[in-house]
Computed example of a mutant assay.
Amino acid sequence: MKLRMWPLCAVSALAMLFPVTAAQAAPAAAAPACPGGSVCFYSGSDYSGKSWEWTANSGYRDLPPALHDHVGSFVANTDACFIAYQPTEKRAVHNGDWRRDYRGDFGGRMDGVGPGHC
């Protein structure tokens, strides 16, 4: 009977030496609320840092200095057109779109935002 318990004890000992790390991983930040008809921009990833709310009825706007070429994340509750210059490039964003880490993508080049489709 002692021989049959050895594999179970060995597995238990190994489990103590190598704990499961998935349970220790921090959960990703959930997208925060953003008012309808708006796009909420954040300078940091995971909706952190400086923030700015653009509304569709305000027309085209340059991003504020803290976000110019530094959009780390966003939440869209309306259709919008993200714009970068030199070279000019546009990205359509739709109601319900969000990105928790955007700086390494288009957020690192973005200069302005306008209403509707690009």
Rank of each mutant, 00 (worst) to 15 (best):
D69W: 03
A84D: 03
S38K: 13
A26R: 12
D101P: 00
A30F: 04
D79L: 02
M16N: 03
A66L: 09
D69Y: 07
P32A: 09
A30Q: 15
F41H: 01
L67H: 04
L63K: 02
G59T: 06
G112D: 05
A26T: 12
V71I: 15
D105Q: 13
G114V: 05
S45H: 08
V20F: 11
R100V: 00
P87Y: 05
K90M: 09
T55V: 05
A22I: 07
H68S: 12
S48T: 15
T88P: 03
F18M: 15
D79H: 07
N95R: 10
C81K: 00
A33G: 15
S51A: 10
D97S: 09
A56Q: 05
A56T: 07
G36K: 10
H70V: 05
C81E: 00
D79Y: 03
W52G: 02
W52L: 04
N57C: 02
W98G: 01
P64E: 14
F106A: 08
C40G: 06
A23E: 14
N77H: 12
S58W: 10
S58D: 15
G36N: 10
K90Y: 09
G104C: 08
S51D: 03
W52K: 04
A30Y: 06
G114Q: 10
L63T: 01
G44N: 14
Y60R: 14
G44Y: 09
S58R: 15
S73I: 02
D62P: 00
G59D: 05
Y102G: 04
G59C: 06
A15P: 01
F82A: 13
S43P: 00
L67I: 04
P115D: 00
L17W: 07
T55S: 11
Q24M: 15
G116F: 09
Y47V: 02
P35F: 01
D111I: 08
C34V: 02
A33I: 14
S58C: 04
G96F: 14
D101V: 06
S43R: 02
Y42S: 07
A22S: 12
A31Y: 08
R109H: 11
D46M: 07
H94G: 05
A22L: 11
V113L: 14
R100K: 12
S51G: 02
V93L: 05
A22D: 10
H68P: 00
D97R: 07
F82Q: 04
G114N: 04
R61P: 00
P87T: 12
G112T: 02
E89A: 08
C81H: 00
G112W: 01
S45Q: 12
E89D: 06
